[in-house]
């Protein structure tokens, strides 16, 4: 009978909630107790450096294109030796939703997410991070990767001296 079934359902439900009253709460008392996030946790964004210390970011605009909330802006420029870099690079953390799409889009592993989630601030302008605030001294994840050794444009090395590259072709060579 449905009345019996319904009553049973209600009673089972009541029993379940009754049991939960005596369970240990899962809540963590945040400011006093802190949970340590996993290394791949997606919080404050940083800009990392090459193993040899150069800025990894080439200001290719892919992160700002991937960003669903448009919180990344930058201006690319070139150094004397032709290295492309970000003249300025700005992340507005008051807009950022920490989705990690920027880090996923980054072809040079420059932009990375860190587990540092405590960046709250009373003045919203303090949440607008410039390149000086974002750039760290280190490689973060993938410590051995250097984009310029892979992309055949010869900025950090002679042309044709990168990984997987032959020396430049001489068009007037005698060899066929």
């Amino acid at each position: 009978m449905s009345v019996i079934n319904d009553t049973k359902a209600i009673v089972i439900g009541m029993w379940t909630t009754w049991k939960h009253i005596f369970r240990r709460p899962v809540t963590l008392q945040y400011p006093e107790e802190k949970r340590i996030p996993y290394p791949r946790y997606r919080a404050r964004i940083v800009l990392t450096r090459d193993p040899d210390g150069g800025e990894r970011c080439v200001a290719c605009y892919l992160c700002s294109a991937a960003c669903p909330v448009d919180c990344i802006s930058m201006q690319s420029a070139a150094t004397e030796e032709g290295r492309r870099y970000a003249l300025w690079f700005r992340i507005n953390f008051s807009r950022c939703i920490f989705c990690g799409l920027c880090a996923e889009a980054c072809p040079t592993m420059a932009i990375q997410m860190t587990p540092d989630f405590e960046i709250c601030n009373r003045d919203i302008m303090n949440l607008v991070y410039e390149k000086e605030d974002l750039l760290i001294d280190g490689c973060g994840k993938s410590p051995e990767y250097n984009f310029y050794h892979h992309a055949g444009i010869g900025v950090t090395q002679r042309r044709g001296a990168g990984l997987e590259e032959k020396p430049p072709v001489d068009v007037r060579s005698l060899m066929p």
Partner: peptide, 13 residues
């Protein structure tokens, strides 16, 4: 044309 033909030598031989 010179660089195209292999019997035109653009380097000393």
């Amino acid at each position: 044309l010179a660089t195209f033909y292999e019997m035109i030598y653009r380097r000393p031989v």
